[in-house]
Amino acid sequence: MPKVGMPDIRKPQLVKATMAVIERVGLHSASISLISKEAGVSTGIINHYFGGKHGLLEETMRAILRELSDTVKIKLSGLPADAHQQRIIGIVNANFEGFQAENKVAKTWLAFWSYSMHDAQLKRLQRVNEQRLLSHLRIELKALLPDEQANLVAHGIASLIDGIWLRGTLNPEGIDAEKAREIINDYLDKQLAFYHPSSL
């Protein structure tokens, strides 16, 4: 966590620099020296406010997670409360469009996923993000399916989001948000048809 007193203007500047350097050279080669040069600040500032590379990576991931959370909220706020299937797709879209689909953000996500397997604090952040996604999905799915099945389908959609997103970031052409929407809608339609066959 950054120390209290870190100028607000510096945080986005350093987060942006961290992502740019990770995109260019990868996480392991993304040294404090390279990041500070990219941001136009001294290495001392990073070490003082973030305690080094690990703290800066944590703050970078917090910034990305906040952006994702805000995007989901914006998507949902523009949809009727009873448009549950549309709201599910809104949640899906938030994971594949705009900021989250930028190459530098995608590469930082991949680095974060890898790093979090061996770091308790980053693993906790990943867990919070996972639970937030599942919670959003369950809220909408419980209006359409029995509780047990809603939970199962929420996990299914989350797995599809992660898998499609991972494949997209490793593809030179990037993430195909339309294809992601098509695949997840197909999965959801089949789940709903199984429990509500008479509605077809």
Results as ranks from 00 to 15, higher is better:
Glu97Phe: 01
Val15Leu: 05
Val92Tyr: 02
Trp165Arg: 15
Pro2His: 06
Leu145Met: 02
Glu148Val: 12
Tyr49Ser: 04
Gly5Phe: 00
Gly174Phe: 00
Met6Tyr: 07
Glu102Phe: 03
His136Thr: 02
Ser42Arg: 01
Lys3Ala: 08
Ile91Asn: 04
Glu23Met: 07
Ala94Val: 04
Lys53Tyr: 00
Ile161Asn: 04
Thr43Asp: 06
Ile35Glu: 05
Lys37Ile: 05
Leu141Tyr: 03
Arg167His: 15
Gly44Pro: 01
Val153Glu: 06
Lys104Glu: 08
Pro80Ser: 03
Gly40Val: 09
Glu23His: 06
Ser114Gly: 12
His28Gly: 07
Ser31Gly: 03
Leu152Arg: 11
Lys142Phe: 08
Lys190Ile: 14
Glu148Arg: 12
Trp113Gly: 14
Leu110Tyr: 05
Ala81Leu: 11
Asp82Val: 07
Pro2Val: 08
Asn129Gly: 13
Ser116Gly: 00
Val72Cys: 03
His136Gly: 00
Ala83Leu: 03
Thr60Leu: 03
Gly163Ala: 06
Gly52Cys: 11
Ala177Cys: 06
Ser69Met: 04
Asn171Arg: 13
Leu133Ile: 09
Gln85Ala: 07
Ser36Ala: 13
Ser69Ile: 05
Leu152Asp: 14
Lys179His: 15
Leu134Ile: 07
Pro80Ala: 03
Leu110Val: 05
Tyr49Pro: 05
Ile183Tyr: 05
Asn185Arg: 13
Lys11Gln: 14
Asp8Arg: 11
Gly5Ile: 06
Ile45Ser: 10
Leu56Thr: 03
Val72Arg: 07
Pro146Tyr: 08
Phe96His: 10
Gly55Thr: 09
Glu59Tyr: 07
Ala150Trp: 01
Ser77Cys: 06
Leu170Arg: 13
Gly90Val: 02
Arg66Ser: 09
Glu58Thr: 10
Arg10Lys: 12
Tyr195Ile: 10
Lys73Asp: 15
Lys75Glu: 09
Arg62Gly: 14
Ser33Phe: 06
Ala154Leu: 04
Glu97Gly: 04
Asp82Trp: 05
Met1Cys: 05
Ile22His: 03
Gln100Arg: 12
Gly98Asn: 02
Met1Lys: 11
Arg62Val: 13
Met61Cys: 11
Asn129His: 10
Ile139Tyr: 01
Val15Tyr: 04
Leu188His: 00
His118Gly: 14
Arg181Ile: 07
Val128Gln: 11
Gln131Cys: 08
Phe194Met: 15
Glu182Asn: 14
Lys37Phe: 02
Val153Thr: 04
Ile183Glu: 08
Ser31Ile: 00
Ile32His: 07
Leu144Asp: 02
Leu56Cys: 04
Ala180Tyr: 03
Ala39Lys: 05
Asn171His: 07
Ala111Met: 01
Ser199Lys: 11
Glu173Pro: 12
Glu102Ile: 01
Ser29Asp: 15
Gln85His: 02
His28Ser: 13
Leu76Ile: 01
Ser135Lys: 09
Glu59His: 08
Ile157Leu: 03
Asn185Cys: 09
His155Pro: 07
Lys123Met: 11
Ala120Asp: 08
Asn95Ala: 11
His54Arg: 14
Ile184His: 00
Asp162Gln: 15
Ala20Phe: 10
Gly44Glu: 01
Asn47Ile: 13
